[in-house]
Design a protein around this nucleic acid. Sequence first.
DNA 1: TTTTTTAGCTAAAACGTTTTAGCAATGTTT
DNA 2: AAACATTGCTAAAACGTTTTAGCTAAAAAA
Lengths: 342, 342
Amino acid sequence: MKAKRTIRDIANELQLSITTVSLVLNGKARQNRISQEVIDRVLKFVKEVDYRPNHFARSLRNGKSKIIAFMAEDISNPFFSSVARLIEDSANNSGYKIVYCSTENNTEKTRELIRTFKDRRVDAYIITPTEGIEKDIETLVTNRIPLMLFDRYFTDLSTGYVVIDNEQSTCTAIQHFIEQGYRQIGFVTLDSDQTQMSGRYKGYIRALEASGLPRFVLRIPYGSTETSIIDAIINFLAENREIDSLFFSSNYLGISGLKALKKKNLSIPDDIGVIAFDDSEVFRMHTPTITTVTQPVEEISHKLVESVLNQLRHEESSDDIRKDKIKLPAKLVVRESTARKK
Amino acid sequence: MKAKRTIRDIANELQLSITTVSLVLNGKARQNRISQEVIDRVLKFVKEVDYRPNHFARSLRNGKSKIIAFMAEDISNPFFSSVARLIEDSANNSGYKIVYCSTENNTEKTRELIRTFKDRRVDAYIITPTEGIEKDIETLVTNRIPLMLFDRYFTDLSTGYVVIDNEQSTCTAIQHFIEQGYRQIGFVTLDSDQTQMSGRYKGYIRALEASGLPRFVLRIPYGSTETSIIDAIINFLAENREIDSLFFSSNYLGISGLKALKKKNLSIPDDIGVIAFDDSEVFRMHTPTITTVTQPVEEISHKLVESVLNQLRHEESSDDIRKDKIKLPAKLVVRESTARKK
DNA sequence: TTTTTTAGCTAAAACGTTTTAGCAATGTTT
DNA sequence: AAACATTGCTAAAACGTTTTAGCTAAAAAA
């Protein structure tokens, strides 16, 4: 068992000062006029003995943890776990590790999580914000902590974010219903005022207004169990028997919706048309296959991590950090669930 | 903006020594004969000014990062992201944060990841090991680093682990096929010698031998694309036309399998029976619904985190760490895909 | 009264880096 | 020959904790 070597040991063994070794190791040798001979000697030795600097000491000294916090609503949701997977490698390659947590869209919990992350001087944040967390996010921003929101954001807060064009993509989806001959279009959404949900709602309204069709809206309380969602949808359909199509504004609403329709023995797409937000294997494999508004997960993830790393790189420079405000288009993937026999 | 307060500031403001404050904060006041009056004074003040100790300094001093590494094969796989979600809260409640990474079952990558985690003095590991990583795991064990393997383990390594009884559960599944009247049972698995896969294979063999039925085995190379898996399965069926049922030994093999069957227009369960390993929403929603060997994800997660936290608690004590070797039963969830009309 | 014990607190070292300020020797300009 | 610049390196402070060893004063024992 070789003893852990410190920079001090290295310095002693090479008959150099700690300073010199440190400068070489940090690539600041040239600008500090360390001779090439010494540079080579240090580099060679350090490689030989596989010296690995102590992260704690380094962090203590320079205040950086080399950790990025990934705060998603629920890491086990396929959308969020895909993002988690896709940001992972780039972060690692830049020397960052990612700690995750699930906010459950619970503001109190999120606040507490941010607190503990602050304690650990996490270097950057990627967050799906909850409704009441605005102030806390603002504090991070004023402290110039690199930060990106995603999935939703705060219109009156100057942060970077990556979202999709919820209004336009939903509008397109509803128009697709209309083109397929559906006229009584129901909208099942979460009872939430966050940007992503209000955007989807606006898209629904806009499409309807353009064609003068009636509205049918069901708002599900946040955190409802699957069975209560299913019941709510069944009720909704019973009270509005004219409905001939349903738009589900999230992937798990869609899944519960399909279960509800199955339970009522309604046939898709003939009795009722279906479109769900967020793609997933379930929708691709379902019989019939389900038309979805598909988020560009790769691009979202890529932009998120790119922007955060960029902020981290330019953190020192006094000029303003680039706060990317990115709105990506989502794609309507047309499948069998909207192919009505006319 | 209030300046960050250090323990030194606290000590000064209270006219006490740093030592005293530190002892109180760490609950070691009583055993060091600090008077109750001083204890109260410190605790009150610290609460008032919301003092938060610097993690880096603490870590540097005592060598603990308060971080657990969660190394799964692929964090975006529903099985692993569920575990991630389920271990998260208990870990947080005990003051630990979780960093994740995806090994892709790539030994070189895993080795490198373990290296970087070691550099950061991660306190504990929860790992789905890859085939070649035995030595590296062993090093962790000899260094007495708290560690749990899951999903698979090394028979000749003394580590804690949580797995399911792959052999028994697969055997039961195959027997179910037989009871349902299937006689030509195909087994689609990954070309891997890891315990979970060999266990499932053994279960298949055992069930067949008991009834003298023929074997049909397809081994898919690790890391195959979905399309190549589908092609392989289609070929396999073409070359073995007598096959009347298929067992898929992982969830994504099952999904690819269903796509292959759909492509060949084979009807489940009449043309062919289907059982998949690992449950997922896809199998519950599929038409017909798919019989699965369902892993007890909650229990797996619970045992994992409980055991790791236990190891962390008793790390100091010189007596042997408890190395829980847990094998949980998996449940056969019978659905429509094995309900052959006889 | 002197010695010993105990109660209550603290000084200082240590953890392992990064970085500022500066020193000595050599080279260059006046 | 004196003054200045440059090259090549280093001493030491700082980051903020935890913990060991020990000090002083009061209480108890001799």
